Simulated scan of single mutants.
Amino acid sequence: MAMNAARLRKIVVCKDLGSAMPLLTERDDLEVIRWTEDRPCDRAWLLENVVGASGIVVCFQDQVDRELVNAAGPSLRVVSTISVGYDHIDLKVMAEHKIQIGYTPDILTDAVADSAVMLALMASRRTGETTSFVKNNQWPVFNWMPFAFCGPQLSTTPFSPTRTVGFLGFGRIAHAVLARLAAFGITHCIYTPRPGAAPQPARDAQLQARHRLAALTPVDLPTLARASDVLFVLAPGGARTRHLVDAPFLRQMKATSVLVNNGRGSVVDSAALARALAEGWIWGAGLDVVDEEPEVTAAHPLVGEPRCVVIPHIGSATLETRAEMAGLTAQNVLAGVLGEPVPVALEYSALI
């Protein structure tokens, strides 16, 4: 028994994968150590238990840095994160040790795109204000007026036949959002791609034709700010994108524009956005991510803004999507510890 145990490949799981866990726990060639408490994985526990591990399952709350990799030792082959983001993983350290990174893109594209459109509608139609109005028993004494609780319409109308949607970051999720907005009669699409991304005129022409747009155009940041009726922030986090949406950017936006952030909270300066909403630089905002998360309480300046809808980073939170993400996370770590190519691996060399 001791000899068999010595040959077991060790996997440390920082987040329970639900129905996908048997993919790991029912194998007799693996030793699976799980963090079972209903709170973020304790760092001291992780550093103690990761020693000798071949694979680690993490989420965005778990920092994968030099300290963790050194604690694991030379046996570590793969880190599998149940997320599309990888801000919590030190890519340079991964490269030094030739460790594969498994992640879960594509699976969550549709769920996040759905939530982005939801937030655009909620922010433009003042859902935060109106739901509070009902919950606070104000409806029975409300004196209706023709323009009470009105907001800008997302769809085009005969009297307003042009709508421009903007994207900061124009990847898979942005394309899925655009596909959904086509039904609203969006006529123009503009975007600022990720820093360093190559132009893709053929792709843009195809998207323009598919969604029957009058134009689909890459633009610089000032033009993106000035021209967008609705701006979707879908850029990755990190130093290169931190606070791209700041006070000077927000001051250029239309007073009737809506900002939606389903990307990374760090891209938007919270203090600047709170001021923009309070002083009417823009109409409203819908946020699935916030720079300071998870330390976002009722005292946070954005939570108190009537025209800001804040939800707690749940863009991919559908039963179907989370189950698929968990399954892929398990498959990624399993392949890595067995010395096989990870099914969905982050090609991170170009990102360093």
Rank of each mutant, 00 (worst) to 15 (best):
M3E: 15
N4M: 11
N4P: 00
A5M: 15
L8D: 03
V12K: 13
M21E: 06
T25D: 06
D29F: 07
I33M: 11
P40G: 08
E48R: 11
V50F: 09
G52I: 07
G55H: 07
I56N: 08
D62T: 08
V64N: 02
V78G: 10
S80Y: 09
T81C: 11
V84Y: 04
G85Q: 05
Y86G: 13
H88S: 06
M94V: 01
E96A: 14
G102L: 10
Y103I: 05
P105T: 02
A111Q: 09
A111Y: 06
M118R: 00
A120I: 07
A123V: 09
S124V: 10
S124D: 12
G128F: 00
T130A: 15
S132G: 12
S132Y: 09
V141P: 00
F142H: 06
W144A: 11
P146W: 06
F149G: 08
P152M: 10
P152K: 11
Q153F: 06
T157N: 09
P158D: 13
P161G: 08
R163F: 13
A174Y: 04
A176D: 08
V177R: 03
L178P: 07
R180V: 06
L181H: 07
T187E: 05
C189P: 07
Y191P: 03
T192K: 13
R194S: 14
G196C: 04
G196R: 08
P199F: 11
Q200F: 03
D204I: 01
H211R: 03
L213R: 06
T217R: 11
L221Y: 02
L221Q: 07
L224Y: 09
R226D: 04
A227F: 00
S228K: 07
V233A: 15
L234I: 14
A235H: 04
P236F: 01
G238A: 03
G238M: 08
A239G: 00
T241P: 05
A247S: 06
L250Y: 11
R251C: 05
K254Q: 14
V260S: 04
N262M: 15
G265K: 01
E279F: 04
W281C: 03
W281Q: 11
I282A: 06
G284M: 07
G284Q: 11
D288N: 01
V290F: 00
P294C: 01
V296I: 01
V296E: 00
T297I: 11
A298Y: 06
V303F: 10
E305D: 12
C308L: 10
V309L: 15
V310E: 05
I311G: 05
H313I: 12
I314W: 02
T318Q: 03
T318D: 08
R322N: 04
A326S: 15
A335D: 04
A335L: 03
P343V: 02
